[in-house]
Design a protein around this nucleic acid. Structure first.
Lengths: 187, 187
DNA sequence: TATCTTGTACCGAACGTTTGTTCTGTTCGA
DNA sequence: TCGAACAGAACAAACGTTCGGTACAAGATA
């Protein structure tokens, strides 16, 4: 049986699923091996720095996907309401309708936290600022824009946690569907 | 050196700290042993079912504390606004000002999730319903009350996640301080 | 064209360490 | 003298990691 080289993105998606399901500590190399259908030694061929390297690569890809699906639409020119609705669609795809937990929560804990917090922190601040920029362009003063943007980030993360804990994706759907409207509401 | 029996609540608090810092998988029995300054074998004397038993006991105590600090004030008779403000104070104490991550997030993942999700789910639904009851007594119809209560739960969980990931407890403080007011706002 | 060389993808099997757990105690107040 | 509170030391199993080696495509050499 010939060794068929697989796309790196496919590998990273499979690794991401395993990390999301079990967390950093819970995702043992055996599990990562099973998730990718690759031998443990093969994983070390692709990621010289081992499990940490896999997590870092997964985080990198997640960042790129988040940028493409969520941040880019927000940075377009044009109607702020439209851009916020595009963000909502992007969030729904990125989090697969709330099915999937956020790496922010999982990699922010314990040893993984110490490694990845700077990166996670940067991602959150960038997201918040991008939303705030849109709101400012929609006519809100900077303070209002920033405080509403912070609320939006909080709502998304909170909805993911509550969705997962209750096993009810409706929570995430409801939170998303009222998000754009609430961000733009006049006092 | 004599073995000084210690209070079970003290033990549970120390265990809870370790679980909160490292998550369920990350909190090895060695770490739990260090956190309690008890030998591993001694932990098994107190918790016959091992690590799972420790987590279950920690969760039980957290539930009791949450009940005393957060739910009880909500169930008092009298001014709804006052009760919601008491809840806010209780939340601030329960989560130590946002310093501490919620067991909901940590125990909802992976194998621990499979074990504890029913309990976590119950706690969230109870919290949501208790807030909704207060809002109904404040004059809102049931639908509005329930949807606002859900938003409140989401906000608290989200603020904890974002606080931890950014290392900024101000996020949690800001979220808490606007919570009661927003819950009672007329359209 | 046939034969080397190189490099990438892959894996079985083993490495030493740590995991969660249990056995066999000792100490000491009641 | 009994039971509760402790711990040292060991257990098999799983951990993250590395070693040695195979399979095969592509390029160079002859």
């Amino acid at each position: 049986m010939p060794p068929i080289p697989r796309s790196r993105d496919d590998m990273l998606d499979q690794l991401a699923d395993a990390f999301r399901e079990h967390g950093f500590d819970g995702a043992s190399v055996s599990r990562l091996s099973a998730a990718t259908k690759l031998g443990k030694a093969s994983l070390y061929h692709h990621f010289k720095t081992g499990k940490e390297g896999m997590a870092a690569a997964v985080l990198g890809r997640a960042g790129a996907r988040f940028n493409a699906l969520v941040l880019s639409p927000l940075r377009q020119t044009g109607n702020p309401a439209r851009r916020l609705n595009l963000m909502t669609l992007g969030l729904n795809e990125f989090y697969r309708g709330g099915e999937v937990s956020c790496l922010l929560e999982l990699f922010g804990i314990g040893d993984a936290g110490r490694l990845f917090r700077p990166q996670l922190r940067g991602a959150i601040l960038r997201f918040r600022q991008t939303i705030a920029d849109v709101l400012e362009q929609a006519g809100f003063d900077r303070d209002t824009a920033e405080s509403r943007a912070e609320e939006a980030v909080i709502t998304i993360q909170g909805a993911l946690v509550v969705s997962r804990a209750t096993g009810d994706r409706g929570v995430f759907q409801r939170a998303l569907s009222s998000l754009a409207e609430r961000l733009l509401a006049r006092v």
